[in-house]
Amino acid sequence: MKKVVFVVSGGELGDPAFLREQAATVAPAAVICADSGARHMRAAGIVPELIIGDMDSLDFASQKYYEAKGCRIIRHPRRKDETDTELALHEAFAMAPTEVWIWGALGHRVDHTLANISLLVQGKEKGIDVKLIDEWCELFLIDRRRVLEGEAGQTVSLFPYGGPAVGVTLTGFEFPLTKAVMEIGSPYGVSNRMTAGKGIIELDSGRLLAVRYFRPGVFPGEVKG
């Protein structure tokens, strides 16, 4: 049985209504906020079970607000090895989920975005599906056969992560591949598109970082009627 935990970081989220809709559909076992990710939850009208971090970007009034709502807060010192999002992810792992969805992990801070992408590796090491998600897209690692359920026209970009991806086969995409080798520094896997409601990604070894946009042909910063 699927058990999903939401982790909410303080980066870009998009429309909080999308998170609220997904929470209503998925019914996460818990919502854990990394520091200022709690602001997103207030906008979405959701009270998290836990807020964790050094609290350098969540004001005292907000902390008291959530404590009054019964939310537990774990405070860490500012000088630490882990990011607040990593601390929240570790709390999520302790709940033995099958999936962790990390919201608010992308945005204008490229260094923070890269740090959050690297956290996907911890999920693979633990056998837990972890993805970064916002209103626009989702990012996840693939190290075995993966079937994407979606719709024709969705943009899916694939990049080798941590080394070459060997034996890559793509079925149901505008640009198919058969037993290809994808090397770091040769990003020809960008901006592929699903041709139907299902796309199949297979590889023999290595890892692929996948970026899938939910709305065909629509990307952040663009408005299309």
Rank of each mutant, 00 (worst) to 15 (best):
H40G: 04
N116H: 13
T83H: 05
F18D: 10
A92L: 04
N192D: 14
Q154V: 03
E67F: 04
A152I: 02
E135C: 03
S186L: 13
V26K: 06
F140H: 08
F175R: 11
L120P: 03
A96H: 14
D15I: 01
E99Q: 14
V100E: 02
K198N: 08
G150T: 06
M55G: 04
V8D: 01
G163K: 09
G45K: 06
G150R: 02
M182D: 00
L19M: 15
F18A: 13
V100L: 04
V5S: 04
F159P: 01
D204P: 00
E99L: 02
R75I: 12
S62P: 00
V211I: 15
L106Q: 03
Q22A: 14
R144Q: 14
T113N: 05
G127L: 10
G45A: 08
E67G: 10
H112Y: 08
E12D: 12
A92I: 01
D129P: 00
F214H: 12
P160E: 05
G162P: 03
V7Q: 04
D35Q: 09
D84H: 05
V5D: 03
A105I: 02
V218L: 15
A23L: 13
I51L: 10
A94D: 12
A27W: 06
G104W: 00
T98R: 11
R193G: 02
F93M: 07
T85M: 08
D81C: 07
I142V: 15
M41E: 01
E49V: 09
V130R: 00
E149V: 10
C33P: 03
P16S: 09
E91A: 14
I73V: 15
I73L: 15
L87G: 03
R42T: 04
T169V: 07
G172T: 06
P48F: 01
A30E: 11
L58Y: 03
V100M: 03
V110K: 09
R146H: 12
W136A: 11
N116W: 04
T171Q: 13
A96S: 13
W101E: 08
Q63S: 09
P160Q: 05
Q122W: 12
S186M: 12
H76D: 10
T155I: 05
K179T: 11
